[in-house]
């Protein structure tokens, strides 16, 4: 599959999703990029902004199996991964696969569960396999986790530690729609759309899991110029020496930027990466991988502000500015 074919296919997928998920184009685009780059996504946003709908629609359009886990304080690791259960008729322990054994997993309100349960999922995300009682079982392919968390309610939550946040390829902010988009949502509702009855929405499947795996393999062929490798390294390097930041991004962030840029280039039908691919993904790839100094936090500076500041400081390759 070449870049042009891949771009055409992704555009079809995007258009089909955008038909139902209105006004979240950037979130959809970044989610598809993460999917192509074999990464996982953390969605942060207030309730009711369409996070769950996005995952359900995505599963239908991609033709993938999907499951949902509602994280709660009493959720156990085995509730995620599954476990060995004694079978009375057979007189032996049998493995009951947990909901993680799926292709598209929605981990809703991931910060509601204790660290132990979070770790079980994050390990599965990283290794793409689950080990129970010494037996390792691979997860199906493709495997994408979309986790959500609510930024408003902080009581009774277990914030994800930095090391675990780093496992997410992108952290995406789902913002409230503006008035025009809100109106479009209302019009769609009046037109008969019901988010709880997606069967009536006639969502068409645009690809198959095998084809998706081929697309994931194809983006590795996208060319990256040496100057862009330097550009990525400089951006990530700046996060480690920035005055507002307590700690900077890891090399995993550089890799996420690189692979994400390749996926974005392929999405637009190009077989080479441009600086714009890198720059446009920097916030999504870096915002959860850097930590603010306390005084910056007091001043109300966000990690997004820091990334924007760093991007301003780094010269884009081939820029003609003096």
């Amino acid at each position: 599959m070449n870049a042009a074919e891949l771009g055409q296919k992704v555009r079809e997928i995007h258009a089909e999703i955008a038909r139902v998920v209105i006004g979240q184009d950037e979130v959809v685009e970044h989610t598809l990029i993460a999917l192509l780059a074999r990464g996982h996504v953390l969605l942060e946003g207030a309730p009711g902004l369409g996070k769950t709908l996005l995952v359900r629609v995505l599963a239908r359009v991609l033709g993938c199996e999907s499951k949902r886990i509602q994280f709660t304080p009493d959720l156990m690791p085995s509730d995620v991964t599954g476990g060995n259960v004694f079978s009375q008729p057979r007189g032996a322990f049998e493995f009951m696969a947990g909901p993680v054994f799926t292709q598209l997993l929605l981990a809703d309100e991931i910060n509601r569960a204790p660290a132990k349960t979070q770790s079980a999922l994050l390990e599965a995300m990283q290794e793409r396999s689950v080990t129970v009682d010494g037996t390792t079982r691979p997860l199906p392919s493709p495997f994408l986790v979309i986790a959500t968390q609510n930024p408003i309610e902080s009581q009774g939550t277990y914030p994800l530690p930095e090391a675990q946040l780093d496992r997410f390829f992108f952290k995406l902010d789902v913002r409230a729609p503006d008035a025009a988009v809100e109106k479009a949502i209302l019009v769609s509702h009046l037109g008969g759309f019901d988010a709880t009855a997606l069967d009536d929405a006639r969502i068409e499947r645009r690809t198959r899991p095998e084809e998706l795996c081929a697309m994931q393999a194809a983006i590795r062929q996208v060319r990256v110029d040496d100057s862009l490798l330097e550009y990525i390294a400089t951006i990530v390097g700046h996060t480690r020496a920035h005055r507002w930041l307590y700690f900077g991004a890891s090399p995993r962030a550089s890799l996420a930027l690189l692979v994400g840029a390749q996926a974005r280039a392929a999405m637009f039908g190009r077989d080479f990466v441009t600086p714009d691919d890198v720059k446009s993904l920097a916030r999504a790839a870096l915002r959860h991988r850097i930590g603010l100094q306390p005084d910056a936090e007091i001043e109300g500076i966000s990690t997004d502000d820091c990334v924007v500041e760093i991007l301003r400081e780094v010269r884009v390759p081939a820029s003609i500015a003096a």
Binding site: T274, P275, D276, K279, S280, L311, R315, V316, S319, A321
Partner: peptide, 10 residues
Amino acid sequence: QIEADRTNGD
């Protein structure tokens, strides 16, 4: 605006 941090996409 020509500035060192602006890409062609910008």
